[in-house]
């Protein structure tokens, strides 16, 4: 699943709805596994669907998948950790993506990324302990003229300076309670 394809349909529930419970998600996974049980080559599609259900790939789900598809857990995690679009850590409430396209890279994108890592105390692909932010990199968001660019959720921030970062992050921290769950 590409980073920016937010699963709008299935689980970002209408506002009146409660968050989908853990149990429901596993029930859904069980359904999927029943369907795919005997289909060869099912591993990757099942992993993709599972990631849509949970937002990431929890270990418990991986164990279930391994058992249902009759594959060793080591093989399943081998596949999961090979492809960068799979995530075994839950996503933060806010997704920060730093553009490392050529223009951004030469105009400070690299420094911005380093500063973000430092500020958040995480590496690319990781999530902060308070689950506020996840950090990722991207390849050109189409705003090269205004490099360096970062995206936080759906907002594009241009000509980002390292010194602005703490303030920028603060805005999102404040918003956390009103943000919809993804």
């Amino acid at each position: 699943m590409p980073d920016d394809a937010k699963p709008a349909g299935v689980f970002s529930a209408p506002c009146a709805c409660q968050e989908v419970s853990e149990e429901d998600r596993y029930a859904q996974l069980d359904d999927i596994l029943r369907t795919y049980r005997n289909i060869p080559g099912a591993l990757i599609p099942v992993l993709q669907i599972t990631q849509t259900i949970f937002g990431y790939l929890p270990e418990k789900a991986l164990r279930k998948i391994a058992a249902a598809l009759n594959k060793p857990l080591s093989e399943v995690t081998g596949v999961v950790t090979f492809y960068s679009f799979f995530n075994t850590i839950p996503r933060g409430r806010h997704m920060i993506r730093v553009c490392l396209g050529t223009a951004c890279y030469v105009r400070g994108g690299k420094q911005v990324l380093a500063a973000l890592k430092e500020e958040l105390g995480i590496d690319v692909g990781e999530t902060t302990a308070d689950r506020n932010f996840s950090l990722d990199v991207g390849r050109c968001f189409g705003a090269c003229g205004l490099a360096p660019v970062i995206m936080i959720d759906d907002d594009v921030h241009q000509r980002v300076k390292v010194s602005q970062l703490p303030r920028l992050l603060e805005q999102y921290r404040d918003k956390q309670d009103t943000t919809s769950k993804t």
Partner: peptide, 18 residues
């Protein structure tokens, strides 16, 4: 099937899950 390559590139380790 206890052993399998995990992660990729320079990070690759050959071993059990994760």
């Amino acid at each position: 099937g206890a052993l399998f390559p995990q992660f990729r590139g320079y990070q690759t380790i050959i071993g059990p899950a994760l």
